[in-house]
């Protein structure tokens, strides 16, 4: 297997403060990886970096054979304007963007694909429902349907199951496994360690610094989890600037 996304000494952050620090590694093509870690450990930041929305402070992200526009990305807090007068099929049809572009018409075949996608997420009959009448779970189902239509090689999900009921989570997990079977690369930020153990073969444990990255059973070893929990969340305003000559320097707990 080859890597579809390779991270080379990657540092991402805000205002010069690292949120993801010196991360090396690769997401294999067709892999199903969970990113786990405490709040503020840089999980969402890493996804933003992979989508290209955030430029690295240091190091590199290499996308092998795909452009960042071919990555389907479901953010943690969708900026969807729920008051906008759109219906479910309008929202889901945005997933045709790549295949139909800016001005191409939505065709008959697309109509069929749209129906199938809605069926797959259990939203059949919701086509004409205004989006401001959807529950949180229904909206998340609709967004998964949109990801389906995007037909992307790489799919990034940022805490996709937060505040979603068990039935919906089970349905959406089935969809994630379906994508995995189709050899798509799926990377999901999650908090539910039990679910990660059950569903995700690969795990990256992040606490700003990478704690472990590899097979889930090894990564989620209690010792590693304890290490991740000890991460200090606060920025050190007076931390010295990084010296780029020494690649792997030591970060003291206090400067």
């Amino acid at each position: 297997m080859s890597a579809v996304i390779r991270l080379d000494d990657l540092t991402l952050g805000y205002d010069g403060h690292p949120a993801v620090h010196h991360l090396d590694g690769a997401f294999e093509t067709g892999s199903l990886t969970a990113i786990v870690g405490p709040n503020g450990s840089g999980k969402s930041t890493l996804l933003k970096g992979i989508t290209g929305a955030l430029k690295p402070l240091g190091g590199r992200i290499e996308h092998a054979g795909i452009s960042v526009r071919e990555i389907a990305y479901l953010p943690q807090i969708a900026e969807i304007d729920r008051t906008f007068p759109a219906v479910v099929s309008d929202l889901v049809s945005l997933g045709f963007w790549k295949s139909r572009g800016l001005f191409g018409a939505i065709r008959g075949v697309d109509r069929g694909a749209l129906d199938e996608a809605l069926q797959a997420v259990g939203l059949r009959g919701f086509e004409q429902r205004p989006i401001d009448t959807l529950s949180g779970g229904q909206l998340q189902r609709a967004l998964f349907a949109r990801v389906l239509l995007q037909d992307a090689r790489v799919i990034l999900l940022d805490e996709p199951f937060t505040a979603i009921d068990e039935k919906t989570v089970a349905d959406l997990i089935a969809l994630v496994q379906h994508w995995h079977n189709e050899k798509r690369t799926v990377i999901a930020v999650l908090h539910d360690v039990e679910m990660v153990r059950r569903v995700f073969p690969q795990t990256l444990l992040l606490a700003r610094e990478p704690i472990a990255w590899g097979a889930t059973s090894e990564t989620l070893h209690p010792e590693n989890l304890l290490k991740a929990r000890r991460m200090t969340e606060a920025w050190d305003e007076h931390a010295p600037w990084h010296d780029h000559v020494a690649k792997h320097h030591h970060h003291g707990d206090a400067a």
């Binding site: 526009r69 969807i80 945005l94 963007w97």
Partner: peptide, 22 residues
């Protein structure tokens, strides 16, 4: 001409940013 991208930009700007520079 800009109806569809404008529609997308109003509805879900993050999504539009992730698929297009429009």
């Amino acid at each position: 001409v800009i109806w569809r991208p404008l529609f997308a930009e109003c509805l879900d700007p993050t999504f539009l940013r992730s698929v297009s520079k429009a």
